[in-house]
């Protein structure tokens, strides 16, 4: 774009140069500036492409190569001396998450369970996982979307600790409606990790993107970088907050809390390296997609049964 705009300037100036010869130097200067900017842009772009090619892509199923922004020698160290978690080796798993939106009944048990399990602030503005409701009214071609962030969906008298979807469309003519649970996508190429200035958030070889709360300075750059709005600031701790698939549970052989309480089997979790795990079966038996694939983040949360308006 820089090059184009400077060329336009040159053509308009060509008309004027017939009168003033002294402007030739300015014209060539602008031309050089345009070329220089174009080259710089290309260099930055190429550098970015090279950087992102450095990790993640080769590691779709884990145990194959370095994760995002991990040097080969660091990956070798991760295999040789894995973190001391009893009975768990992080290079032997590749976790993934499935959401079967057809089943979701919007009971919000997952949201409350997550808040309890992970000591997330109880009010409606702080969530690691949440559920969105998409409602198409008769004669309207766009969806009305709401979630627990809407005050109406807070259970009356609960001081914003308990949530229930308000029956606001009771008397409306609804042509289509469904619920979509959302959570951190634990991307293969996480934007949040790329922008973190202190190394407080990182991609693990087994899948989840974790937050080291001791190193997090609460700058919220990651909150802005995430294309999915999955991150928020925990105003009690002053650190970033997001879903980590209950890393403390999955490393003990348990399901994440939201999967544990989901009464309908909407949320599916498992190890992609085990072909018989729930998630492997889910991916085999359903046609799934991910949110915002064009962002290039390569999410690890797979959705079945969502509409085109869900992003």
């Amino acid at each position: 774009m820089n090059q184009l705009s400077s060329e336009e300037k040159m053509t308009t100036q060509d008309i004027n140069t017939e009168k003033e010869a002294s402007h030739i130097s300015r014209r060539s200067f602008l031309g050089m500036l345009g070329k220089g900017a174009a080259c710089a842009g290309a260099a930055v772009g190429a550098g970015g492409a090279l950087a992102s090619a450095g990790g993640g892509a080769a590691n779709a199923l884990g145990g194959v190569g370095p994760t995002y922004q991990q040097e080969p020698e660091q990956y070798a160290e991760a295999r040789k001396n894995p973190p001391k978690i009893p009975g768990y080796n992080w290079t032997e798993h590749k976790w993934a998450f499935g959401v079967d939106s057809n089943r979701c009944i919007g009971c919000l048990r997952c949201v409350e369970a997550c808040k309890m399990e992970n000591s997330v602030q109880m009010d409606r503005n702080h969530t690691r996982t949440w559920v969105e409701r998409y409602v198409y009214l008769e004669g309207s071609d766009h969806a009305h979307v709401d979630s627990i962030h809407d005050l109406k969906n807070v259970m009356p008298g609960s001081k914003e600790t308990r949530f229930v979807f308000d029956n606001r469309y009771k008397n409306a003519k609804v042509t289509k409606a469904f619920f979509v649970p959302k959570l951190c996508n634990q991307c293969e190429k996480p934007s949040c990790v790329q922008v973190c200035p202190t190394g407080a958030t990182y991609k693990t070889p087994d899948g989840p993107v974790l937050i080291d709360t001791k190193y997090c300075i609460g700058c919220q750059y990651c909150v802005q970088a995430c294309p999915y709005g999955a991150r928020s600031l925990n105003h009690v701790r002053g650190t970033a907050e997001k879903c980590n698939w209950c890393y403390h549970r999955i490393t003990k052989g348990l399901n994440p809390a939201c999967v544990e309480v989901c009464p309908t089997g909407t949320r599916i979790f498992g190890d992609r390296m085990d072909p018989e795990s729930p998630i492997s079966q889910f991916l085999r038996n359903n046609r799934v997609n991910v949110l915002k694939p064009d962002m290039g983040n390569m999410p690890n949360v797979f959705y079945a049964g969502i509409d085109k308006e869900v992003i």
């Binding site: 991760a78 973190p83 768990y88 190394g199 990182y202 693990t204 974790l210 080291d212 403390h248 490393t251």
Partner: peptide, 16 residues
């Protein structure tokens, strides 16, 4: 720090 990447390697076990 830098053990597994640009982060504190000990934090993984602490989170778990």
């Amino acid at each position: 720090f830098f053990q597994y990447g640009h982060y504190r390697g000990a934090s993984v076990a602490q989170i778990a």
